[in-house]
Write a protein that binds this DNA or RNA. Sequence first.
DNA 1: TCTTATACGGAGACACTCTCCGTTTTATTC
DNA 2: GAATAAAACGGAGAGTGTCTCCGTATAAGA
Lengths: 193, 193
Amino acid sequence: MTVKKSKPAARTLRADALRNRERILAAAKAGFTKNGADASLDEIARRAKVGAGTLYRHFPTREALLEAVYQTEVEKLAAVQREFSKTMEPVEALRAWMLLFVDYIAAKQIIAPALYTLLGASPKVFQSTGGLVTRAIEALVAGAVASGEIRADINAMDLLRAVYGVSSVASAPDWPQRAKRLVDILIHGSRVR
Amino acid sequence: MTVKKSKPAARTLRADALRNRERILAAAKAGFTKNGADASLDEIARRAKVGAGTLYRHFPTREALLEAVYQTEVEKLAAVQREFSKTMEPVEALRAWMLLFVDYIAAKQIIAPALYTLLGASPKVFQSTGGLVTRAIEALVAGAVASGEIRADINAMDLLRAVYGVSSVASAPDWPQRAKRLVDILIHGSRVR
DNA sequence: TCTTATACGGAGACACTCTCCGTTTTATTC
DNA sequence: GAATAAAACGGAGAGTGTCTCCGTATAAGA
């Protein structure tokens, strides 16, 4: 038997591999932005001047790629949650963060399908990037519940899914306003009677 | 120049065409139920013992087929709305119908992607079947607003989109309860302060 | 029965996903 | 600055799906 290093976990990529990874991410961002979350992966590989095999080796599934592309955006959302939780009243923090969530979707319409995946079923996806969003909204709701201002029986993710539902399917140009109004409705409806 | 009959509008289908249409619809319902809204159309044609061309002639797009398959379901929802509006208090009618909406999605999970389309952007789809759902929820909201019990600035479709957001993405087995709780939150949040 | 408008079917062009494996490039060792 | 092994690349190709085109079949009407 050969001796193995324990925990090879995050191996360092070779220089060319790293280069390609970046190029793929750039091409993917452009591709998703232009053609939505179901843009052709081969096309993205082509634009990145990389073989299809290379793309799939780096990102085995479409979700993995989508996730990598929007990881930074999602990380920002998570960071802001920590900020808000420290500096604001619980309910206001929740409201403010949800409004920000709308803005993020507005700014990057493409993030919507990605978040759809994150909010959705797949447990694997949930673990990594998705976990950040989950933890953010859950921390906010937990805080607001603890303060006694909102009902204890509300499911944090459901609030987000509701907002997402309005934002992503949205057709009319005034959807951000409508989404924000919905946030108000949700917050108000969530208050202890 | 040849003389044309004016308004050939809804031509009567030939007997075999009608037969095939029914078979396609049956196969499509089975297919969508089993494999979701992105089931293979060629596969459906095969199951219906019909050429691909025939399927596409009857239903030029996937949406058209989806719409035709769930038209009856949607019609039921519309009928119930009229019923509720006559026999119940405005706000209760709205609440009851939304709860029923959740049940419909629960019963026919496949309807979810279809409704997603109906609630979504495409104006064409909006006109036909989609219009029924739209009109139903809008009538209910209008009634409740007129009675002075809920805010005038809420968008009817948004309520539905919110519920849909929770219902469709739902992973956990308790999603119907959660969806219904959300209906309560939405109704309560929509009340005049 | 004959005619013709209507409808059918499935081969085939094109697109997309994903894998496999021979070739190339990088890092390391001497 | 070779030589060597490990790592990574690329793209052909198999599998699957979408949608169209047009020669063939069939229903409806005279």
